[in-house]
């Protein structure tokens, strides 16, 4: 609970964790890229274009994971009026938006050789596109007010409203028959993907998660400092 309310506490711990997380992220990305691009075999149908998967799938996971974190932080900010939770949601939004964008672009690049088209209007792609707009809406809304706290709270409500989209994205491939292939890693009867492909996928996923946490802490620090600057300026203006 202390982490939710005390900026000094967050600052102290994140200053310690940031270099370690940065190093870990670089190591994992290097290992993941080696496994994905060199060590893993090409697919017997898709050839080398299957390697797009090692970026596309973790990015798509992160898009959903970041949104879930953002919604959870927003809820915490609204319920417990915790400024740190609000800031965490703020810091997560651009990262999530970037992962969503990467997932959409790599998906498009992968779709061209596989399906013969850059884009299809199926349920999975459409719902991920809506997710992208939800991220944009969150960012725009949180900066649309003169009082940043007001913008953060409005955006928090939007994040919670938009959360209905997350299960829709997850299950869209099961509920509607689409071009997009169904889940093959996270399923009840165990992964249906070959271990030589699963390993790089998981390493990349962990690397992306580390990257997110690293970025989150760095952005959290700068947001806290931003808030301090704001408070100083306000004190200057109002005496």
């Amino acid at each position: 609970m202390r982490a939710l309310v005390n900026p000094t506490f967050v600052m102290r711990w994140s200053t310690r964790a940031v270099p370690w997380l940065g190093g870990l992220t670089l190591l994992l990305v290097a290992a993941g890229l080696y496994l994905a691009l060199i060590a893993s075999p090409p697919d017997y149908q898709q050839g080398d274009s299957v390697r797009i998967m090692y970026v596309h799938v973790p990015a798509a996971w992160m898009a959903l994971f970041c949104y879930t974190c953002m919604a959870a932080a927003s809820a915490a900010g609204l319920v417990w009026r915790s400024p740190i939770a609000d800031l965490a949601a703020q810091a997560t939004a651009p990262v999530g938006a970037a992962f969503t964008f990467i997932a959409l672009v790599t998906g498009s690049l992968w779709g061209k050789p596989m399906w013969g088209t850059w884009w299809v209007w199926d349920a999975r792609l459409t719902s991920v596109l809506i997710l992208q707009f939800l991220y944009f809406g969150f960012i725009a809304l949180s900066h649309a007010f003169d009082d940043p706290a007001r913008g953060q709270r409005a955006a928090a409500v939007l994040a919670l409203v938009g959360f209905v989209n997350v299960p829709i994205i997850k299950f869209s491939v099961d509920w509607w028959s689409t071009l997009h292939q169904p889940a093959s890693v996270v399923r009840l009867d165990g992964p249906s993907i070959h271990p030589s492909m699963l390993a790089p996928l998981l390493v990349m996923a962990i690397a992306f998660t580390c990257y997110y946490v690293w970025l989150l802490l760095v952005r959290l620090q700068s947001e806290i400092l931003n808030g301090k600057i704001r408070a100083l300026r306000l004190r200057q203006a109002h005496g």
């Binding site: 596109l129 707009f133 809406g137 939007l158 938009g162």
Partner: peptide, 10 residues
């Protein structure tokens, strides 16, 4: 404009 950005995707 903001309203359109928030609402149209939904």
């Amino acid at each position: 404009v903001l309203l359109a950005l928030l609402v149209l995707p939904l």
